[in-house]
């Protein structure tokens, strides 16, 4: 049987910088530098593997629809994603950060129903639902730290790496919702219909990062 074509959707940005060396260690090197190329589909040193470079939040969509067989995206994106099953067999141990609840230092919310500004609406709702607390969730697309400063919200839920941005704006982390890292995700249909090459790639990556994952 000819080797099936595999398409990998990679997240643009910081995760990409850490993903490429990982792929290189299992022998997958893009034919062009993704940082420079304007192409959206890149061929690689392995003729049966090609790469898509997309926004992190779009990776699950591409993989769910079968536009890509596998993908690399943050756990934060996967937690926020609803509907449809993706396999998440590997923690790639890159793109580490924390999803935290943060607020102004020494200030309790004065609203009966606190407001939370976040990009992660579903995750935030689930977190407060599990705590049994009613909150109003306000969707923002960036610069969450601003929201408490202008009293748009009492708290924010956002990704934190070093915590410098929080500190610079007088905010402190109150609670960690989840430890975040990049995951390998696989379309279930691809797992079943392209079993051999998919498993080979997953095993190779698992060996490289040294987890006792499914062989």
């Amino acid at each position: 049987m000819p080797e099936a074509q595999l398409t990998l959707a990679l997240s643009k940005g910081r995760i990409l910088e850490e993903t490429l060396p990982l792929l290189a260690r299992v022998g997958i090197v893009p034919d062009e530098d993704p940082a420079r190329s304007r192409r959206l589909i890149l061929s690689t040193s392995q003729p049966h593997i090609r790469l898509l470079i997309v926004r992190p939040t779009d990776v699950p969509t591409y993989v769910l629809h079968g536009g890509a067989d596998l993908g690399v995206t943050g756990k934060d994106v996967l937690m926020e994603q609803a509907g449809g099953i993706l396999y998440e067999p590997l923690d790639l141990r890159i793109g580490h950060c924390r999803l935290v609840l943060a607020g102004r230092e020494g200030r309790e919310p004065d609203r009966a129903q606190p407001r939370v500004a976040t990009k992660y609406v579903a995750t935030t709702r689930a977190f407060f639902a599990a705590r049994g607390q009613q909150v109003d969730v306000i969707k923002l697309y960036g610069s969450m730290e601003l929201a408490p400063l202008v009293d748009l919200a009492d708290w924010i839920v956002d990704l934190v790496d070093t915590g410098n941005t929080l500190r610079a704006n007088g905010l402190v982390p109150l609670e960690t919702l989840a430890e975040i890292s990049a995951r390998l995700v696989v379309n279930p249909a691809s797992w079943k219909t392209k079993h051999a090459p998919v498993r080979a790639l997953v095993s190779a990556l698992a060996e490289t990062i040294g987890t006792e994952s499914a062989p």
Partner: peptide
């Protein structure tokens, strides 16, 4: 199990 989420399963 349905998501074969091995890190979380461990």
């Amino acid at each position: 199990l349905q998501r074969k989420a091995m890190p979380e399963l461990r």
